[in-house]
Design a protein around this nucleic acid. Structure first.
Lengths: 258, 258
DNA sequence: CGTGACTGGTTGTCTAGAGAAGTGTAGGAG
DNA sequence: CTCCTACACTTCTCTAGACAACCAGTCACG
C-alpha cells in the first residue's frame, strides 16, 4: 500500500526509482518550477523507505541540477534564471569607441544594472598555459587584472586578464580603473590595433571556491572562456580567462560558411 | 590520534573537512591522476568517522568530477581524457568539397578512427524551439536525422539535425547515408548555397539518458550546441542540436575585432 | 595444467535513530 | 498594537550496523 510505484525487488535501486518518479513529475508538470517537493518525511511514508534512502533520491536530483534545497524550508524545483546571451560581436570596436567595455555593453542591452569589483591589479608570474598563449617565457611577468562582474547585484562571472608587462607598465592599465573602453581601448591607444580574438570554451563542475564566489547552486557547471587578443601584427597582447555560471549564459557565435 | 586534521567541533562539517583534505592531496600531487584513494575503511580509521560520513566525503568529490568510483575496486583520481579541439572552421566549404563531413574532418585530423551510428532518420514534428529557428510553424514536419558519433570506438557526441521537409523530401538526405560531404553538400546541390552558421552554446548536467548514451562518469557536464545554417538568401535551412561530453572537447572560435 | 570454489577486500544499498540548526507561525506578554 | 517566545516543521549531520554485489588473488581438485 505504501510503496507507490517502487519495487524493492527490482534490479534498479529504490532510491533511483524514487528519483525517476520525481523527475518524471517535474517533466509532466505536476511539479512545476518553484514548487516544493514533498518533505523527506512525506516521501518516506509515500514510498515506504528509510530517511537515508529518500535523501539519496533527492541528492541525486540535486546533483543533476534539477532541484535546490533550502535548510529548514524544503526542496524546490529549480527556477531557470534569465539567460544572458553573449554574442560574438561583443568586442566590436564600435562598442569600445562609445567608451564601454564588453561586459557593460552586453548587460545594459538587457536593461540590467552592472557592477564590477576589482579583486586584484598588479604584476605576477603567469601560469604556464597563459605564458604559452602570450608566447613568452613563464619567468617574464605579466599584469594581472582579476575582477568579478555583477548583474543586478548578482555575481555572474569572474574574469582574469593577463597583459605582458612591457605593454602594460606605465599605462592606465595598471590602475584599478583603466578608463573608458577598458584595457582594449588602452592597448589600441599604445599602437596595438586589435585584429582578432581566439576564444576557447570549456565546461566543468566548479571548485568550491568558484561555487561560493559565483553563488552557484549544486549541479550547475561553469563555462571557462580563455580568450586571446591579437594585434594587427599577429602578436598576442592579452589573454583573458573568464569563469561564468553556465546556467546564466548562452554563448552565441557567428561562423562564416566560407 | 585518529582524527588527523579534522575538528568535529568546527563549524565546517566533518565530511567537508575530509573532502577538503583529499582534494588538497590531489592538487599537491600526493594523489596523482589514476591513483586509488584510501578505502572507506581506511578513511574511517584515519579520520575517526563513521562510514556514512566518509562516503559523503567521496560523494562530494565525485560530484565535483574529481574522482571515479569502481564497484569492488575502489575510488580513483579521474584521468582527464584527451581533449578534442573543435575549431570554428570545421564547416568550411573546402572540407565538404573533399567529400567529408565536419565530424570526420576533425577526428581524422587527430589520427582517430571514426564511427557513426544512425539512430533515426525520418519525418517528425519539430520541438517548438527548433521550429522557431527554422521560421516555420511547429505543425509543419521536418526531416529528423539523429545519430551518435564515435571516436576510437568511444561515443563522444549525439547530434540531431532538423531540415524543413520541403527541402529534404525526395533527396538523399532522407536516406541513412546521405552521400559524400553529408547533408550540407546535398543542400548546396539543391541550390541552397550556405552562407553562415549561428551557433549557440550552453552547458548543463546530463540527464540519466545522456549519461548512459555518452558513457559519462559522474560530475561531467555536457555541452549543448545548437547550430542554425542559413543559405545565401537568409533562410534557415537546417538546425543541428549536438550534445557532447564536456570533458572531451574544447570549442575554439575565431572572432574578428572589427 | 587449468578450472572452479573460496576468501578477503572493496563499494553499493538500505535501515533506524539521534541531536543540531534553520524557518515560519501561533499565541502570549507588554 | 508590537515584540518575543514556544512550537512544529523542515533539512543537515553523524552514527552503527546489516546484507548485497563485485573484484582479484589463492588454493585445491580434477
Amino acid at each position: 500500500m505504501a510503496s507507490e510505484g517502487v519495487d524493492p525487488t527490482s534490479d534498479r535501486p529504490v532510491f533511483r526509482q524514487i528519483a525517476d518518479l520525481l523527475r518524471a513529475q517535474m517533466l509532466d508538470g505536476s511539479l512545476p518550477e518553484g514548487a516544493r517537493l514533498p518533505s523527506e518525511r512525506e516521501l518516506m511514508e509515500t514510498y515506504g523507505a528509510a530517511r537515508g534512502t529518500v535523501r539519496q533520491s533527492v541528492a541525486q536530483l540535486k546533483a543533476e541540477g534539477l532541484i535546490q534545497m533550502e535548510h529548514g524550508r524544503g526542496a524546490f524545483v529549480r527556477r531557470r534564471p534569465p539567460v544572458r546571451r553573449v554574442a560574438s560581436d561583443r568586442f566590436a570596436r564600435r562598442h569600445r569607441d562609445e567608451g564601454k567595455g564588453a561586459f557593460t555593453v552586453e548587460t545594459e542591452a538587457e536593461g540590467l544594472s552592472t557592477g564590477v569589483e576589482v579583486l586584484k591589479v598588479g604584476p605576477e608570474h603567469p601560469p604556464p598555459d597563459i605564458a604559452e598563449r602570450l608566447s613568452q617565457p613563464p619567468t617574464d611577468r605579466v599584469l594581472v587584472r582579476r575582477r568579478r562582474y555583477l548583474a543586478d547585484g548578482e555575481p555572474v562571472e569572474i574574469a582574469t586578464s593577463y597583459v605582458p608587462w612591457d605593454l602594460a607598465s606605465g599605462t592606465p592599465m595598471t590602475r584599478k580603473n583603466p578608463g573608458p573602453g577598458g584595457i582594449y581601448a588602452r592597448l589600441e591607444e599604445t599602437g596595438h590595433r586589435l585584429s582578432r580574438f581566439a576564444e576557447e570554451v570549456t565546461a566543468r563542475m566548479p571548485v568550491p571556491d568558484e561555487s561560493r564566489s559565483l553563488r552557484l547552486s549544486a549541479g550547475v557547471p561553469v563555462f571557462v572562456l580563455v580568450r586571446t587578443a591579437y594585434d594587427s601584427e599577429g602578436r598576442a597582447v592579452e589573454v583573458c580567462d573568464t569563469v561564468m555560471a553556465a546556467d546564466r549564459f548562452v554563448l552565441a557565435y557567428d561562423l562564416p560558411a566560407g
